[in-house]
Simulated scan of single mutants.
Amino acid sequence: MASCFICDKQSDPGFDPVGGDELAVVSHVLPGAPGRGPGPVYLGHLVIEPRRHAPGLADITDAEGAAIGTWAARVSRALRAAGAEHVYSMVAGHQVDHLHQHLIPRYPGTPREYWWPPRMDEWSGAKLGGVDEITQVVRGLRAHLQADGR
């Protein structure tokens, strides 16, 4: 198999996910990821990926699908607890040949014309940040997940 960005990311000793289990992992989108520039990213933009390399939805097992769905629900609750009024979910698969489900929060005050990704980060008031801000968001999400304990 050719190199896979997601498989490589998950096997990096410095990889620090928001959460996960033996089947799926949740992480925050970082500056410089495929399809992204080096600048700030939309805070709270998470991806859920199977740990095993699987190109698309049809390639995951039922157990992996259940794990991805469970993590989507759990981190969506954590995003809402952190201030999101809505969480969008989508699987596009255009940039990387490894299934990854995007979870993108919409924060209060976001004008309606920016409600649907990928336009949310185009609004001048969008919550954007770099590594330091992402670290703070991830800490808050982890704390909620730990308190949730499901």
Rank of each mutant, 00 (worst) to 15 (best):
A81N: 01
R77D: 07
T135M: 05
Y107N: 05
D132S: 12
H100D: 11
A72D: 14
R77G: 05
H94M: 11
D59I: 01
D62V: 06
A81C: 00
L79E: 00
G140Q: 09
M90E: 09
Y88D: 10
Q101C: 12
W71S: 07
R106M: 07
P38I: 01
M120T: 08
V41N: 01
G109V: 07
P40L: 06
A58T: 04
E113Q: 12
T70R: 15
R119Q: 08
A92I: 09
L43G: 09
V91K: 03
H53Q: 11
R51I: 00
L43M: 06
A82I: 01
V96R: 06
G65V: 02
H102D: 14
L57N: 06
T110D: 04
W71L: 14
A66N: 00
L79D: 01
K127I: 01
D62M: 08
G56T: 03
G109H: 11
Q136A: 15
R139W: 04
Q136I: 04
G83I: 01
H86N: 05
G65I: 02
L57H: 07
H102K: 15
Y114T: 03
M90D: 08
V47T: 03
R112H: 04
P111G: 08
W115N: 06
R52F: 06
H98W: 14
H100K: 15
P105D: 04
T70P: 02
L128N: 12
S76D: 11
T110A: 09
V47E: 08
G83Y: 03
A54F: 01
A92G: 04
M120E: 08
V75W: 00
I60S: 08
S89D: 03
L57D: 03
G65Y: 09
A67W: 03
S76K: 10
L43P: 07
P50C: 11
M90F: 09
P111T: 02
P118R: 12
M120I: 08
E49A: 13
A73G: 11
E64Y: 13
G125K: 14
L99Q: 14
R80V: 02
I48P: 05
V137W: 10
R80K: 10
T70C: 12
A73C: 09
I104L: 12
L43D: 02
Y42F: 15
M120V: 09
Q136S: 12
Y114S: 07
H100G: 13
P40E: 10
S89I: 03
L46A: 12
I48G: 06
V138Q: 06
G39I: 00
L79P: 03
I68K: 07
D59C: 11
A126F: 13
E49T: 04
P50S: 10
D59K: 14
P38S: 12
I134P: 09
P38K: 14
V138W: 04
I134M: 11
A54V: 00
A63D: 10
T110K: 07
G125I: 05
S76M: 07
